[in-house]
């Protein structure tokens, strides 16, 4: 639209006609990339805050743990329903790998947050498919709201993974709701998603170990050896898996280094707890540390 009114060149030339089309395509792509970068930055920021929130749980026995988990859950839900839904709309009908660089940073931070949350909940590692399903959405437009804030009508379907739809969706900022609403009239409800690549998943898990390490160090003072040893086992499992992967990807290699440092820190923490406990009988240890005796 912007430059068409300028008559610099021979408008009738087929070359010029073709390049006008190219201009349009390029601008559309760059604009979409830019919007995705911004959404990704938002995801990063919000995910980081979830992680910090979860780090506020002291050890494995905190009495406020449930409250924290509830708040973290709400925040994660908001990231999915707000930011990721917008990303999914942008990516609808696209080859997601084309725009991967634009949102990979946010995705990895989000995976770190989600897996950390899950670990707090039940000491398990969230699998790839679960995370992918959380980022699938039915497209169902609110009637006439213009704001970007809460989208009450969006449902997170927890459906089995679907193929990416072919139909492209108009960018959000040009009255996207209308046009996508229009689409849905034709095609009924459809499912859109943000692709979680296996590499992003595993790099997010690598980052998770950094947070596990922080959690472990924080937990030493509780003297809960079992909890600490459990964290150490979990880290070892991830570590052993990573060393079996091989030199596939530069990023994995780089993160393995960090992971090894973190594991050493946790192993040293276990060592400290063990050697500290060696000076009194085992059964007294927990009491001492929980402050139940000798005060």
């Amino acid at each position: 639209d912007s430059n068409t009114d300028i008559n610099l060149v021979d408008e009738s030339s087929p070359i010029i006609q073709a390049f006008k089309q190219y201009q349009n395509e390029l601008d559309t792509k760059h604009d979409k990339h830019e919007r995705l970068v911004k959404l990704s930055r938002d995801v990063t920021l919000e995910s980081k805050r979830v992680i910090f929130l979860l780090q506020r749980i002291a050890g494995g026995t905190d009495e406020n743990k449930n409250n924290v988990l509830k708040e973290a859950d709400t925040k994660l839900q908001a990231i999915q329903d707000d930011h990721f839904r917008k990303i999914a709309l942008e990516l609808d009908g696209e080859d997601p790998y084309q725009f991967l660089k634009a949102y990979t940073a946010g995705m990895q931070e989000y995976i770190e947050a989600v897996t950390f949350f899950q670990y707090h909940k039940d000491q398990s590692l969230t699998n790839h498919l679960t995370i992918q399903r959380q980022l699938q959405f039915t497209q169902n437009c609110p009637t006439d709201e213009t704001s970007n804030s809460t989208l009450p009508n969006v449902e997170n379907p927890k459906l089995p993974k679907l193929d990416i739809q072919d139909q492209p969706v108009k960018p959000l900022d040009s009255a996207s709701c209308e046009s996508s609403y229009h689409d849905s009239q034709i095609s009924a409800i459809k499912t859109i998603e943000v692709l979680v690549t296996p590499l992003d998943y595993i790099l997010g898990v690598a980052d998770l170990t950094g947070e596990i390490m922080r959690l472990a160090i924080n937990s030493v003072k509780t003297g809960n050896a079992n909890f600490l040893f459990q964290l150490c086992d979990f880290m070892r499992e991830i570590h052993n898996a990573f060393i079996s992967f091989g030199n596939i990807h530069r990023e994995i290699r780089r993160k393995l280094n960090v992971l090894q440092q973190s594991l050493k820190k946790v192993e040293t923490a276990c060592y400290t707890l063990q050697i500290r406990g060696s000076e009194i009988p085992k059964h007294m240890l927990a009491d001492v540390l929980s402050g139940k005796t000798m005060d």
């Binding site: 040893f229 086992d233 070892r236 570590h239 052993n240 060393i243 079996s244 091989g246 030199n247």
Partner: peptide
């Protein structure tokens, strides 16, 4: 060499068990 590296990594993974309690 890549195949050898994979086997070597498998061996290393086995040996990691000595670090377990």
């Amino acid at each position: 060499v890549r195949d050898l590296e994979q086997t070597a990594r498998d061996i290393l993974t086995i040996l990691q068990a000595v670090h377990q309690p």
